[in-house]
Design a protein around this nucleic acid. Structure first.
Lengths: 212, 212, 212, 212
DNA sequence: GATGAATGAGCCTTCATTCAT
DNA sequence: AATGAATGAAGGCTCATTCAT
């Protein structure tokens, strides 16, 4: 009984924490750390504001937890990038995978821009432990391509950064694009087109003989 | 005398208003409307917080004024885009011009993402009066290119959006890139390289016979 | 248990709300809505200013609540006026009752003049739902008196108003009278005399054969 | 020239000061010292807020000046009360004179209640230098009447106070009465009736053989 | 585990007041 | 004489956070 109750209780606690994390992710992504109210997160999570403090020391700690939770999967994805995946199929598949994940959680892209723009305290950590490896991996990939796609070596980091902007920006700017294009950039068909578009762009950026 | 006195007085007021607008632009760009404290703007502008209210009805009105002031020049720039400017020189020159302007005021790019991400009230206005024409102009430009650069007609809007991300994202993410690349993306040499990069990308995206 | 806890909790909240209402009544009566500081109410109530907002939406709502709470008993009193109470005993008893109530809460009389003088938003409501019936009841009473006390029908409303001034003014002007008469008009003996005085005045205003 | 300019200037200054005093009287009467804003007085007077400080040291001094200016005529009126004026004509004439003056400046009555209710700093001064003599004079008048109108000596001060309430209250409560009676208590005909009413009341309060 | 009640700090805004012109 | 520009000090209200229950 005691044990079961503990288990139940633990399960309940975990569920509550998850609800809080989800609500916090959405709120922080939209309005940033300073612009988000604790009560608003609590309301969206369906709990009392005081309850948040059972799970997180304070608002900042919750923010940190949101970032950690949100970006671990992305770090894993980056880890799995296969540098040798040079055929078109592979590129398109990879793009589809990445866009698919980001499309399902557009708040992550928003968080990146939030952090970068507001010079959040987590920015250095984010930049070094995740973006730097990502850029290096892309640069490595380009280097492996025949004739480096025609880019100078010193241009490679900027090229990598441009690619990141291409991918994440689509989601971060989704609302702006929706308004300007009269179309929802997060709808499945739009995501499909965006996948084709990015794939095509990548191939133009890094032309590969064997993919033609 | 009377008139001059009035002019002097007006001049002082105008100078104060300008200082406030500049300080506000920097602050809003970084932390958004909700995240920015009025006192912090006042401090940065070197005036008392109460002084802000001599020039702007409230924080929101100041925000609006910042947006209006910041984006009018961009709107003018868009207006002056020459659709027939198809030679490489022209493209590079245009890119240099745009990046030069944005590089000097990176806060404008940040404001765009802030507004888009936080779904600000000015977003629809911004999207319709400025981004939509911009995208249409770009699409028109692509259409005029031989074989449309190989893009389907329905892809064109997304291509235009991608270009916007490419250009503005560089500035919005500047701090993140600085941290990840160990290099200041706003430094003159970096801007120069970015200009070359974007020009090259544009030419790959919209290949033009006479530029080869 | 659950219920009791809820009741306890509710009891504490109710006690706090009551302390706030009392403090607010005293402050508003003295300095009016605009002249009263929220912090000063909170201080008098022994709570933090933020606590007020747990119970009332804003200062105006608190003011409204004070008025509502304060005047309901008076409205009930008016309701219970017995038009046929014509004997001297009855008149004196009624006057004693009214003056007794008002003497215990002189802030209510002050609130009336505050509202009337400052043209508060609640004035029309107060005038129509409470004063108008009061005046009508008094006029009815006079009409029932032999020869109407000698007043013309069209004078009756003004006579009723004069009586109201006679009664409420004593409390509203209490501090002025204290200073001018070197005597506390709210002390029990002064209230006793005032009761005799008003009774006598009423009988002169509305002479009644059977009361002589 | 110089002198004339000075004279003109002085005349202009006096006119400005008067406009300010009038605007201040209206505002203070309605909302009291604490509830009245300096800017609002300035606006109503048609001058810049800074101009007020050319004529009055601060808001409190202006308030004092308003009180002084407003009540000097009343003090004079009290001074001129003729204790021996016992015939009905005389009483009615006096009442007409007082009500006429107060009816033309209802803000004075409002100021009295404001000061008394809010325990203003000027209250003791007002009470001792003006109300006390007024009450004494009335008491003296009553004493001189045959059989004192039937009042005990110790009741006389309260009787005098009641009379004051009767007279000033009509103007202080004017807005409330207007709403409750559907009639403007400050209109000429209403003032006429009120004069008759008060006269009649006075005669009942202080019956005089030779006036019958 | 969860919450209602409470609060100190701080936010946006307004106020009375000053001063250079 | 008059005012536009400016500000220190509140004023109303909200926020993140704590704690008894």
């Amino acid at each position: 009984m005691q044990a079961e109750r503990g288990r139940e209780s633990t399960a309940r606690a975990a569920a509550t924490e998850l609800r809080v994390l989800r609500a916090a992710e959405a709120a922080f992504a939209r309005r940033g750390l300073a612009g988000t109210r604790v009560r608003e997160i609590a309301l969206a999570a369906g709990v009392n504001a005081a309850t948040l403090y059972l799970y997180f020391e304070n608002k900042r700690a919750l923010y940190q937890a949101v970032i950690d939770r949100g970006f671990r999967p992305i770090a894993d994805l980056v880890e799995s990038f296969d540098v040798d995946a040079e055929r078109r199929d592979s590129v398109e598949q990879l793009v589809r995978q990445v866009l698919g994940y980001l499309g399902g959680r557009p708040d992550l892209s928003r968080l990146i821009y939030q952090e970068a723009i507001s010079q959040g305290e987590l920015l250095p950590h984010l930049a070094r432990t995740w973006f730097r490896p990502l850029f290096e991996r892309i640069a490595l990939h380009i280097k492996g391509a025949p004739a480096r796609g025609g880019w100078d070596e010193e241009q490679l980091p900027l090229v990598a950064a441009a690619m990141a902007n291409l991918i994440f920006g689509h989601f971060a700017l989704a609302d702006l694009l929706a308004e300007a294009l009269d179309r929802d950039p997060l709808a499945p068909d739009a995501l499909g087109e965006q996948t084709r578009l990015v794939t095509e762009l990548l191939l133009r950026i890094f032309p590969q003989e064997d993919s033609r």
